[in-house]
Amino acid sequence: MAKERLQKVLARAGVASRREAEEMIRQGRVDVNGRMVTELGTKVDPEQDEIRVDGVRVRLDQVRKRYIALHKPRHYITTMRDQFGRKTVVDLVPFAAEEHLVPVGRLDAESEGLILLTNDGDLVNVLTHPRYQHEKEYVVEVYGHPNEDFFEAVKHGVVLEDGTRTLPAKVRVERKTDDTTILRVILREGRKRQIRRMFGILGHPVRKLKRVRIGPITLGNLPRGAWRELTPKEVKALQQLVREQTRKTKTARRPRQRRRR
């Protein structure tokens, strides 16, 4: 078997996303054939080399792909473990740590809603990489009643405090109360605390935020703190997403042939 980059093998084995696997390598948590590896360019043969993470051997042939939908409550951190000892989304799924389930789609501690957990490294890469621009849908309650300038700014992109502009987003009013407005928002990117930053700059700070959809997967009536296995139909939809993005990426990388004159 041809050799592959170590972080790609770890992601395919469901240990972590590629970016998280790279961080594990930098931290010296990965051994290959008994030797610590810290170089990101290291290539391995997953059929011949013995790979261990934190002392536990990684076996590609024993990985059962799991796909979990979780309703993250407020005050939980979207990570596998937290250096400050705070509660994480992994704590809500009993087998998540043992099966190396990785959270897909981050939410800040004050937000709630849909998080996917999986050990399918290819899926994690497709759903989290910025270039793929998958839709994520939110129900957001903001203070005040936004005017037309607010909606135009969101639809055309908001300049953040760091000087960068967000991608155009979709937004519509769901309903209004005396002091707040409930909005339905669809993004195609996932910057840190993006909606809170956008709406704060536009003069309507967020009171509550809940994500209700990631790509083809919806939160539905799943209670806070509860989780469920994705249905075969949902898994098929996600796998189709991976195949389409892989095909597009290969096509984009293919060199153009010059036309003969």
Rank of each mutant, 00 (worst) to 15 (best):
R188Y: 10
T78W: 03
R188A: 00
R59M: 13
V90T: 13
R184Y: 15
L6K: 10
I195F: 03
A252L: 15
K3R: 10
P94S: 12
V15M: 07
D162K: 05
V185F: 00
P232I: 04
F150H: 07
R193K: 14
T78L: 01
K233C: 06
P216K: 14
T38S: 01
E99K: 09
D91P: 04
V89W: 02
A169G: 02
H129Q: 00
D31S: 12
R193W: 05
Y143M: 02
V93E: 08
P130D: 02
G113S: 06
L183G: 02
A252V: 11
L230D: 11
A97W: 13
G190D: 09
R191L: 13
R64I: 08
R196L: 07
E137K: 10
I201A: 07
S111K: 08
L187W: 06
D49K: 11
R256F: 05
K248E: 15
R66W: 10
R26M: 13
K248G: 06
G225M: 01
E39Q: 13
I217G: 08
G203R: 03
R253D: 13
R254P: 01
I77S: 05
T246C: 14
H100G: 15
G157Q: 05
T38L: 00
R184I: 15
V212E: 12
D178W: 11
P73I: 06
L241V: 03
V142W: 05
L230P: 04
R256N: 06
V37Y: 05
V139E: 15
R19G: 09
G34A: 02
V104E: 06
N125R: 14
R207P: 03
R35E: 09
E98G: 08
H100L: 03
K8D: 08
G190I: 12
V124N: 01
I201M: 00
T79Y: 03
R197N: 12
D179M: 14
E244C: 09
R18H: 12
L123E: 04
I195M: 09
N221S: 15
G220Q: 09
R86E: 14
K176G: 01
R224M: 04
R228H: 04
G121P: 07
V93F: 13
R213Y: 02
E98C: 07
K65F: 10
D108T: 13
K192S: 13
R228N: 05
L219W: 08
M24P: 06
L241G: 07
V158F: 12
E99H: 13
P168E: 03
I195E: 02
I217D: 07
L70P: 01
L6N: 06
E20T: 12
E39R: 13
Q48C: 08
G14K: 04
D54V: 12
K250G: 08
R213G: 12
K236D: 15
N221D: 13
L209H: 04
G220K: 06
K236A: 15
S17A: 04
L238Y: 00
G34H: 11
G157V: 08
G163H: 08
K3C: 01
V140K: 01
E189V: 05
V102G: 04
R165C: 12
P255R: 10
L60Y: 01
L60A: 10
L183S: 06
R5V: 07
F95I: 13
T218R: 09
Q48T: 11
K210G: 00
E112T: 06
M24C: 10
R247M: 13
Q7M: 11
H71Y: 10
H75Q: 15
V154R: 02
L40Y: 05
P46S: 00
L167H: 02
A2Q: 11
S17W: 02
R81A: 12
E148R: 09
P46A: 00
